[in-house]
Design a protein around this nucleic acid. Structure first.
Lengths: 182, 182
DNA sequence: CATTAATTTCAAAACTATTTGAACTAAATG
DNA sequence: CATTTAGTTCAAATAGTTTTGAAATTAATG
């Protein structure tokens, strides 16, 4: 009896597509396995189970478990209920806007918020320790940091707007009767 | 004679500011040393030399050399000529727009372009290997990838526009007589 | 042109992040 | 309620990245 049962080996186009997601994951600082899991779900016509991911990607259960956990947290993967099956089935989020939103909310915004705290503290430090000559320069740099932070904060809703629903930029009547682009 | 000469230890506000840049670097996938070097230059009123970076940050010459190399490549640090000194002096780029532009051009756009190639190849793979049933679905997913790519490409100039000069979005008369925001 | 100074290079070391898989928990089945 | 199945956890192994520092290179000085 054979040791491995490579259930449904990947098609070439699937491997190539998964590779794109692995690179994309890498670019935004997420591990390879995340790209592999999302990539295979993206390729698949039907929701896949835990086992199918393990078997077809040939990665460990641990990786799949942790990977799915993070992907669900990011809103990039949803549970799809299949009547009459004990197993969980997973399907990918296919709206670019929602994917980006989930990523930003989870991995980006928290840093931005804690940054606001840090800037406040730096202000105090400058007041306490710089002599009057150095203080002007230090305060100028702090202002610059603050302006960068503000502009970054403004950018987020604009990106979201360009990617779809435009809730942040548009007044209600602008979206009247418009279908969401996903 | 002491082994180390900790020339000009860092002020608390400098350490805290550098920490912000270390975190920012980390967030965009750049090593800590990059954040430290840029951070100290950002804090400093005057351009700093190689040695000053080594001494004040207490990191190796190798790190500073490689770090400055990448930062110059990104356009985040410039050489500042000081008459009568053999040493190179470095100063930070302080325009957020130029910083982002340099980063995008160097670390982001290349991936986006090579991605275009990959999609072309995937199209061929689908034509060759999928049976007519699977082909429809695969082609639908390829279309989605293409639409994501297009939207990402559109996003870059919009971000640049929001960050400053707006060369990509605006017609020439819109910028008439306007000073660049940095 | 020999000497000193400034910077770069790169192999090895240190460090960090990811993956694995065996042990475990939880939940369904008969 | 014992057994099987599904999925999670986490410590150890592996893989990947960054830093170090000694040697090499390049450029300036006397």
């Amino acid at each position: 009896m054979p040791e491995y049962k490579p259930v449904q080996p990947l098609f070439q186009w699937e491997r190539a597509t998964i590779e794109i997601f692995v690179r994309a994951a890498n670019m935004v600082g997420l591990p390879r396995s995340i790209g592999e899991i999302y990539g295979l779900l993206f390729c698949s016509e039907l929701p896949l189970t835990f086992d199918e991911l393990v078997d077809r990607l040939q990665i460990s259960k641990g990786s799949v478990s942790q990977g799915l956990k993070l992907l669900r947290q990011l809103g990039a993967v949803r549970l799809h209920y299949v009547p009459g099956s004990r197993k969980d089935h997973f399907e990918p989020e296919l709206s670019m806007k929602r994917l980006v939103k989930g990523f930003v909310k989870d991995q980006f915004s928290p840093h931005l918020e804690s940054g606001e705290q840090s800037l406040q503290q730096i202000e105090t430090m400058i007041e306490n320790e710089a002599d009057s000559s150095g203080r002007d320069h230090a305060q100028a740099r702090l202002s610059k940091l603050r302006s960068w932070q503000k502009r970054t904060q403004k950018l987020v809703p604009i990106i979201m707007a360009v990617l779809g629903g435009a809730q942040f930029l548009e007044s209600p009547e602008m979206t009247k009767g418009r279908r969401e682009v996903v």
